[in-house]
Every structure is written in C-alpha cells, then in structure tokens.
Design a protein around this nucleic acid. Structure first.
Ligand SMILES: NC(=O)c1ccc[n+]([C@@H]2O[C@H](COP(=O)([O-])OP(=O)(O)OC[C@H]3O[C@@H](n4cnc5c(N)ncnc54)[C@H](O)[C@@H]3O)[C@@H](O)[C@H]2O)c1
Ligand SMILES: NC(=O)c1ccc[n+]([C@@H]2O[C@H](COP(=O)([O-])OP(=O)(O)OC[C@H]3O[C@@H](n4cnc5c(N)ncnc54)[C@H](O)[C@@H]3O)[C@@H](O)[C@H]2O)c1
Lengths: 239, 239
DNA sequence: AACCGCTTGTGAACGCAGGTACAAAGTCGC
DNA sequence: GCGACTTTGTACCTGCGTTCACAAGCGGTT
C-alpha cells in the first residue's frame, strides 16, 4: 500500500541496516540454495530452507525480510530468484581478491581450499617470512616474501587480509596490511588485534571453541551425578 | 550483601549459570593470563586484562563475577589465583582426549597444532577413509582407518569429536561419533549437523566469515558515494 | 467468481548481552 | 589509626536478537 510510495521516496535500495548475525546466516542460506539449485525444484518454503540451514523458520523469514519481499505467499521462495537476491545483498558475484599472510600448515590449507574460490574469494597474494617457503606454489599461487606485502596489496587491490602467522607477529602484520589499504581482516592468531576505526576484524579462535565444548561437557557431567538439577534435558535441548 | 547469605544457602560452588558468550571470553582471559604469568607481575587490574583481551573492562569484571569474587578491591586480580579459578571453571587441567575425523589439509593442520595440547586437548585418534593416508604419522599420532572409529572412541574415552571431512559425509560421521559416545562435536564442514538432545555442536564456518567481511566492506563503500547501487532493477521488477 | 488452504511477512513480547555509573571494600601513605 | 585513593562487584538501563503468533496475500479449486 504505502510500501511502493515509500520506495519512491527513498529513491532506491534498502536503507534498512542488516544485523551482522543475520548476514552470517544469509551466507549459510546462500550455500544451502547452491546445493538445492542442482535439483529441479524451483521453489522452497521457509520451513525447508530453515531445516537445511539448521535455524528457526520464522527467523529465516525475518532474515530474508531485511532484503525486502523475496518470496511468494502460498508458494515459497524461488530458488534462482533468492540466490540472485542473496548474492547481490552479500556483495555480488564479483571476485574478491584476498591476501594471506603466514603460509604455514593452516595457511597452506586455506590457500589450497577450493570452497573459497567458488564463492568469489581468491587468494591473489600469499606471503611468508620463511625463505624456505617463498617460491612454493600453493593453490595456484606462488608464495612471495613478506617484504612484498605492500606492493602485492597495492597491485591486486586486495580488500581482505587473512592472518595465519604466529601470534607474536600478528599485530605487526595487521598494521602493515592496514597501512597498505586492507580494511577487512580475518585473524586466526590467538591475539586481540588493535586496528584504527573503519577497519573490520573478525577472529577465528579454535582453542576457544574447544574450550567452550569442554565447559559444556563438564557442566553436563557435573550436573548429573552429584546433586540437584531435576531437568537435564533442558540444557541439551536441540531445536 | 545478600550474596553471601545466598551462597550459604546453596552450600557450595556456583549454581549460577554462565552465559556461553562469557565462557568463550573466559577462555580468552585464561590465555592472556598464561602469557602474563611469565612476567613477574603478581596482580593485574581489570583494565589491563581487558585491554589485552580486547574487551570492555566492566564486561570483563562482569564475566569474572560469574565465578564469584575473584579479585581484591583496590589491588586487582592475582594472576596465579585467577588462572587457577579460570582453569577450574573451564573444566580443569585434566587432559581432554579428542578424535579428529578427516585428515586432509585442514585436519592435518589441526592435528599438528601445538596450541591445543598446551591447553589440555589431545588428539588421541586420527581417522580417515583414504587408505593412502592411513598409517601416516601426524602430530605424534598415527592415522587409522575410519572403520576403527567406534573402537578408538571407546578405548580412548574421547569426549570431543572434530569433523574435517567433506561436507557430504559429515552427517554420517557425526552420527557414528554420537553413537560411539561422543557428546561434543566441533564441525568444520559447511553443513548443519543434526544431533540428538544432550549433544553439543559448534560450527566453524570460514566461508561465512569471509562473506561477512565482504558484506561489511561493501556496506562501507556503498555508504560513501552518494547514489548508485549497481542493481536497481531487482526491486522494481519485484513489485 | 468466490472460497480455501498454504505460506509469507511482520508486530509484539521476551530474554540476553553489553555498557554505564555507582557503591562497597580493601590497601597504602602518613 | 585514620583518611584518601584505587579497584572491584553489581544494579540499572539500553539496544539487539530470537521467538511466537497472526494477519495479509497468493494460487489452486470448485
Ligand atoms: N594450525 C592450527 O590448527 C591452528 C589452530 C588454531 C590457531 N592457529 C594459529 O594460526 C597461526 C598459524 O598456525 P600454523 O599452525 O599454520 O603455524 P605455522 O608455524 O605452521 O605457520 C606459521 C607461518 O607463518 C610464517 N611467519 C612467521 N613470521 C612471519 C612474519 N613475520 N610474516 C609473515 N609470515 C610469517 C612462518 O614462516 C610460517 O610459515 C598461529 O597463530 C596459530 O596459533 C593454528
Ligand atoms: N581447507 C580449508 O581451508 C577449509 C576451509 C573451510 C572449510 N573447510 C571444510 O573442511 C573440510 C575438510 O577440508 P579439507 O580442505 O581438509 O579437505 P580435504 O579433501 O583435504 O580433506 C578431507 C579428508 O577427509 C577424508 N574423508 C573423506 N571421506 C571420509 C569419510 N567418510 N570418513 C573419514 N574421512 C573421510 C579424505 O580422505 C580427506 O583426507 C571440508 O568439509 C571443507 O569444506 C576446509
């Protein structure tokens, strides 16, 4: 009713902000849809998608509603249409150049992983301080000395930097990446990076993941034998 | 005030539940303290710890308050005392046996990583379906055939299972782990695992991390120039 | 053409997490 | 011994995320 009027007033696009938690789930939905596109089905309901993504159907609909009306009531969502909408919302299909610093065991695994390229993320620069590793070819790219960091970032216009160096040097690597123009950083080193405003950092901390699991395990076991806690199912309840 | 009274009523320990987000941060604090213990300083203030951990000082104090009074007013927290308190809260120092399924590039990197063992997490079982990999020694452990999964879990009493197999087989591997008695699972495969109640699953999704960074990057750039938005047709066509 | 069933989209309520501000409490200096 | 300073611990508030429930809308059917 006044939705069309409003869209006229705002000229274009969605001024609405999308919560970060929603963005993360949108990426999951997109991957599920990619697997679904192979099948012949042209439509999916929120219930099916939610089941495949492991989330609540109502939450999924609310997530999608941030992109505006995407589905058809009584039918569901067009698989191809929703894919386009999601890819557009998440930054389009354009290739996103990334640089990876620290080509150790973890770094090499990331550089060699095909799942990133299929989503538009390409490692155009692999950097390491170890002369032994420089010159190696990993995942279709040659490892270059860390001294080339600035020039590689400048040449490739890399937007994302991934840090898989030892923790001690992660901050200095981060500083150099930011100085070179990188404004998005994914950090695997177990340190809290300090960055200037306007730079986004996401941290992947595998030790913490294990420690949380250990805590939940202990909490579960600790609650069972000794005393109290009449409802053991409440905590472990799965959706 | 009535906190002490209440603690008397409940006899002992902490019946208070600790939010999962807090647990994750507690693990970070513990790691920061480990690095700090080498130094001579016997006390740290919430401000120092918070700066090192990259969080708000008040939030850190609130996190620690879940464990009961840990610090001394006017002085700070005893480094050694807080370490003991945190390790106890997170499940003690006892070694936690883990099994790792799928010794590919990522799995091998994890199995070879020294940072887990130093926190009590030991990979006591490495399993893979590829006969080529069976028999390899990775990180002080020999890769065994996937058929041994049940016996390995039973023998080692592994509490945590880590899945680094291709996505297609992740659910079946998960089912076997759960059936064998594993109640905590860390999943790297890009699928939503379905588990029965009482089993905890945590998922690490690196593609999603990159995609969120890409979105934030796009959102930042999209906000700077006045107009445009390269996909104007999508909305008009919708309605 | 009107009805019916199915699914979306969203308003409202709830619970949780993070931040601010302040009072309690202990130590250090004199 | 006492005062003042420092730092903790917590109560309050605000905003976010999630869930529930329901009305609106569309396709198919009669
Ligand atoms: N491997 C894992 O499973 C794992 C798990 C959790 C966290 N991490 C973290 O990820 C990071 C890397 O782990 P890893 O196992 O690959 O270690 P690694 O030692 O195998 O690799 C580190 C690489 O960084 C390079 N490097 C060192 N200093 C550098 C510098 N100044 N500039 C550029 N490169 C430099 C080294 O040459 C090496 O190739 C570490 O911070 C580690 O704590 C790893
Ligand atoms: N490598 C990365 O950087 C990366 C990044 C994100 C996600 N992942 C995910 O992690 C998983 C592993 O990635 P990878 O790069 O190590 O792949 P990989 O192909 O190198 O390793 C997979 C391993 O699993 C083994 N395997 C296959 N089927 C199995 C089964 N039924 N039982 C036991 N083992 C089996 C294979 O033999 C192989 O050794 C994948 O799901 C991938 O999507 C990897």
């Amino acid at each position: 009713m006044f939705g069309s009027l409003w869209s006229l007033l705002v000229t274009e696009s969605r001024p609405r902000i999308i919560p970060e938690a929603t963005v993360a789930r949108l990426a999951v939905y997109l991957r599920v849809l990619a697997g679904l596109a192979g099948d012949g089905c042209g439509h999916v309901s929120s219930g099916e998608l939610a089941a495949a993504a492991g989330v609540n159907p109502a939450g999924l609909r609310k997530d999608l509603s941030y992109l505006g009306p995407c589905g058809v009531r009584g039918v569901g969502y067009s698989v191809s249409g929703l894919r386009e909408r999601l890819t557009a919302a998440l930054g389009g299909e354009r290739s996103r150049p990334c640089v990876l610093v620290g080509i150790g065991r973890l770094g090499a695994a990331l550089a060699d992983y095909a799942g990133f390229a299929s989503r538009g993320f390409q490692f155009v620069g692999l950097l390491d301080a170890d002369p032994e590793r420089v010159g190696d070819r990993v995942g279709g790219c040659t490892v270059r000395p860390i001294a080339d960091l600035e020039s590689v970032v400048a040449d490739t216009e890399a937007a994302i930097g991934v840090i898989t160096t030892p923790a001690e040097v992660a901050q200095s690597v981060c500083d150099r990446l930011v100085a070179a123009g990188v404004r998005s950083i994914l950090n695997f080193a177990p340190v809290a990076l300090t960055v200037p405003g306007g730079v986004d950092v996401r941290k992947v901390d595998l030790s913490v993941e294990l420690q949380v699991l250990a805590f939940l395990d202990q909490q579960r076991d600790g609650g069972r034998p000794p005393v109290t806690v009449p409802v053991p199912a409440a905590l472990g309840a799965q959706r």
